[in-house]
Design a protein around this nucleic acid. Structure first.
Lengths: 202, 202
DNA sequence: GGTTGGTTTAACCATTTGGTTAATGCAAAA
DNA sequence: TTTTGCATTAACCAAATGGTTAAACCAACC
């Protein structure tokens, strides 16, 4: 029993709950399955977290933070628009490839348990809007409403993850090819967005 | 008891199951709730459709067809690329505004019950690819892989529907404004895609 | 060694859930 | 009018589910 290798029961529960909730969703997840996954007695779940709902809320708000783009620093830096866009898309698609269950879990939960959203922090929407307006004023890009651009960027990154089963079926794509396509999209999405919003006469 | 107004029990069940499954998802839906919605005895559900899974499969495959873009005719017509794109995006966003639960329902189901996908028909991926290649050859648009363009187009239309709760929270948007933004997007998405793939020197 | 207080467990509980059944309703055929 | 066969219902059932409880465990402290 190594000192540093020890993982507390609470951590074990969190890890297990993450796995099961992400894979099965709230309604589909079973407390017993979480207990099995954590290799502890089911009563421990309630001992540490009260109820299924409270446990879910813990997992949701933690995961929500991962999903909301961490753009604040990038926006405040003095780097070019192109750079911000490129880094953002790369980072985001990488994160999604590492967490393929995350988008569906969050979207599903937000729709069916909207009360969980109230516990989450805000995305710096105003900051993003201001930054974008500056880029427009500087004639770096064509005018576009911040919420539209953000929806476009995130949608282009996230949708292929959400639509994976349909996508693979419709185009008859194997797993390795699918991963390859996601990687390709880092370049593709950057290019697509850049062309869509750049100034024509340059 | 009007002759033409009569709705068969089977139809009543389908309507009710659609409503409940779309709103609650498979795991969240309750057979009793479907029966209540249809105002019939719960045993009728099993009498007509066997099991929850069989009923779900009926609803899923019907709804899947609505979601898969009906592009075949458009692709075979001799109209311009611009026209196909414009009509496609308009039609699709309109359909989504009328069926806001549809995307999450399909995506959720495909992920958690992938076996349902095997019952569905195929999307004419090859036809779309061939048509797009022709547009590229005719120098109507820049080269782009068919699956990327399709993911982009659908993603740009669908993602705002999926992300609605988060979107509204992050940007503090009321329901009427949200609807307005979706309508705006018909124009916006067309423009965005068109600029992204048009030939530069014209 | 004994007490204390947090941790863990097996057994239990009430309710919900998908599904079944046996009896009844009922319209059309005979 | 009686029979036939599908349609419908109330009552029921076994399994699953989230949650509880009382007892046991166990390391730290006295």
């Amino acid at each position: 029993m190594e000192i540093e290798e020890h993982i507390s029961t609470e951590e074990r529960i969190i890890k297990a709950a993450e796995k099961i909730f992400l894979r099965e969703g709230y309604a589909g997840a079973r407390m017993q399955e979480i207990a099995n996954e954590a290799k502890i007695n089911k009563a421990m779940l309630h001992y540490y977290f009260g109820s299924k709902k409270e446990l879910m809320e813990k997992i949701f708000s933690a995961k929500f933070k991962e999903f909301i783009p961490k753009v604040t620093e990038a926006l405040q830096s003095e780097t070019t628009f192109e750079n911000v866009l490129r880094v953002y898309i790369d980072t985001y698609i990488d994160m999604l490839m590492r967490n393929p269950y995350l988008p569906l879990f969050l979207i599903d939960t937000m729709h069916r348990n909207p009360e969980f959203l109230s516990f989450t922090q805000n995305f710096p929407g105003k900051l993003f809007a201001a930054w974008l307006q500056k880029q427009v004023d500087l004639k770096k890009i064509r005018p576009i409403k911040p919420h539209h651009l953000l929806l476009n960027m995130i949608g282009l990154c996230v949708f292929p993850i959400l639509a994976k089963p349909m996508f693979q079926k419709v185009f008859q794509i194997e797993e390795t090819d699918y991963q390859q396509i996601l990687t390709e999209r880092k370049e593709m999405v950057y290019d697509f967005v850049m062309r869509a919003i750049k100034i024509d006469d340059e």
